[in-house]
Design a protein around this nucleic acid. Structure first.
Lengths: 222, 222
DNA sequence: AAATTTGTTAACGTATACATTAAATGAATG
DNA sequence: CATTCATTTAATGTATACGTTAACAAATTT
């Protein structure tokens, strides 16, 4: 068993990211480097390095002498980020379709669709959400643009908490499932225009839905 | 005179970025933390922090025990990055047009166009390049999506060296100037579809032009 | 000679000490 | 009372020491 130890810096990055996603470090909360260091059981140095990295990812801000602040998302920002995600995923959808992938290469997509449909039947929203994210990531992979992929992954991280919050307040995602299948069909047919159009409609709808939920529930900063 | 001192970490980030842009730290070159620290006249700590930040920006890679490597751009990557830039700037162009900005708000755009036209007349490519970048940044600003803006700025940084290399090997950018003016007109008219279409054609053309130049001159890693 | 092992070196990762400086507190002044 | 200024405090920014470990070289074995 090649049990390879990670450096504390990498561990701190992962741990802090996890604490942010889970809400244990809540949006807009502030934390001193020394607190975090104690919490993670290491010295300030690797924690400091981790906060720099996470600041670059937009998950927190380093505010000297006020502590590290966990970035909150407003409905406005959610909308902005979804706009970017829409533009990039639609590009990936078109590229994926035009690449002429054989059905075998699209197995991951179809697998996710099946999982989403299963999850919807029993209203398991957490499982649906997981499969949905996997689907979107698989789509981006098929697009084949590594730089695009990186941004999309990062932007998904930024809205992760907000999306989780809306997950149980949104209608059953049956419409989403239909959209995904339509996209899959378009990619399989090699129809780039349709793939892009279908996905744009899907993402735009989701954006409007989720921002409306945030606003309706008064979730100013999530 | 509020001469506010910057931290060494911030200074190191800026200095290293400058050294990378200028080519003093060439693409694919490797540098130990201690070397860089000596070079910048500070200890390893702030240099290390700076390299983490710049790694997040994709300007370099931290490779333990092999030194920090300056990221090189291949024609393929150039193309990928321009694809992303195209998607995002086209979105910004559409949004800017639909926002119905009065002519006064578009003064910065027009100023850049004039500068580009002037520079083209006397074949001052450096001045043209500067005005071109200003134009694109102004466009992104008008789009009003701060998250989108951040990515575009970063991606421009990543291709900066490559773009500078092609600057003197490309044809006179008279076509670009026409494109910019057509985009300006569309935004002024509030014509989102045209703004997006014009800019997509412009960016796509530029992408093909620049990647072709890189390949033609055998510039594998820039 | 090729491959494996061992030893050496030097770069990194981390803790820590300390200098620096922004913020907070309280005193002094108008 | 509000304001300014000095003082204190505590968190950060930086240098540095040192243990750890990957890379390289030398030595040994097959």
């Amino acid at each position: 068993m090649n049990k390879r130890e990670k450096s504390n810096t990498l561990a701190a990055i992962e741990e802090l990211r996890g604490l942010i996603f889970s809400g244990e470090l809540p949006a807009d909360s502030n934390h001193l480097e020394s607190e975090l260091a104690t919490r993670l059981g290491m010295s300030r140095t690797p924690v400091r390095e981790a906060t720099l990295v996470l600041a670059g990812e937009g998950l927190l801000e380093v505010r000297p002498r006020k502590g590290v602040r966990i970035c909150a998302i407003s409905a406005r920002e959610m909308s902005e980020i979804y706009e970017v995600l829409t533009a990039l995923e639609c590009l990936a959808a078109r590229t994926a379709a035009l690449a002429g992938h054989p059905q075998s290469k699209l197995a991951s997509l179809e697998g996710c669709i099946l999982k989403m449909e299963q999850a919807t039947k029993i209203d398991d929203r957490v499982a649906w959400s997981k499969a949905d994210e996997d689907f979107h990531n698989a789509l981006i992979s098929l697009g084949g643009n590594a730089h695009l992929q990186r941004i999309v992954l990062n932007f998904n991280d930024r809205v992760r908490r907000a999306r989780n919050l809306t997950l149980h307040r949104r209608p059953l995602p049956t419409k989403s499932n239909e959209d995904h299948r339509a996209l899959y069909d378009a990619i399989l047919r090699g129809d780039g225009d349709t793939a892009e159009a279908v996905h744009r409609a899907h993402r735009t709808h989701t954006r409007e839905l989720l921002t409306a939920i945030l606003e309706k529930h008064g979730l100013k900063r999530v």
